[in-house]
Simulated scan of single mutants.
Amino acid sequence: MFIPLYDSNHLRHIKHQYVTIGLIAANVIIFFLTSSSDEYTMQARALGLGYVPSVAFDRATLPAELVLIPSLLTYVTYAFLHNDIWHLGGNMLFLWVFGDNVEDALGYWRYLLFYLLCAIAGALAHGLLMPDSQQPLIGASGAIAGIVTAYLILYPRVKVWILAFGRIPLHIPAYMALGLWILFQLFMLLFGETDQISWACHAGGIVAGALLVLVLRSRDVPLFEQEEPAAQPAESAPAEPAPAADDGPSPWGPRR
Rank of each mutant, 00 (worst) to 15 (best):
L5M: 11
D7P: 01
D7R: 10
S8T: 13
N9C: 03
N9L: 05
N9K: 09
H10R: 10
H13Y: 12
H13A: 07
K15S: 04
H16R: 14
V19Q: 04
I21L: 07
G22Y: 10
G22V: 06
L23Q: 03
A25K: 08
N27I: 02
N27Q: 06
F31E: 03
T34H: 04
S36K: 09
E39D: 14
Y40T: 12
M42A: 12
R45Y: 07
A46S: 01
A46E: 03
L49M: 04
G50A: 07
Y51D: 04
V55F: 00
V55S: 00
V55A: 00
A56W: 09
A56H: 06
A56M: 06
D58Y: 10
P63S: 07
A64F: 02
A64E: 05
P70Q: 00
P70L: 00
S71C: 01
L73I: 00
H82M: 10
D84M: 07
W86N: 15
N91T: 08
L93D: 00
L95S: 01
L95R: 02
G99N: 13
L106N: 11
Y108A: 05
Y108F: 07
R110M: 03
Y111A: 02
L112N: 05
L113V: 00
L116W: 08
C118T: 06
A119L: 05
A119Q: 02
I120D: 02
A121R: 09
L124Q: 15
H126K: 05
G127D: 10
G127V: 07
G127N: 11
G127L: 12
L128T: 06
P131E: 11
Q134D: 12
Q134G: 13
Q134E: 15
P136C: 03
P136D: 02
L137G: 04
L137T: 03
S141F: 04
G142A: 06
A143P: 08
A145N: 11
V148E: 08
Y151V: 02
P156W: 11
V158S: 09
K159S: 09
I162D: 01
F165R: 10
H171F: 15
I172Q: 07
Y175L: 12
Y175H: 14
M176A: 13
A177G: 02
L178Y: 08
L178F: 06
L180A: 09
W181K: 01
I182F: 06
F184A: 15
Q185E: 08
L186W: 13
L189Q: 07
L190P: 01
E193M: 05
Q196Y: 13
I197A: 01
A200F: 12
H202F: 12
I206N: 08
V207H: 06
V207L: 10
G209V: 04
R217K: 14
P229E: 02
Q232C: 10
A237Y: 05
A239P: 13
E240G: 06
A242K: 05
A244F: 05
A244G: 10
A245M: 10
S250R: 13
P251L: 01
W252D: 12
G253R: 04
P254F: 09
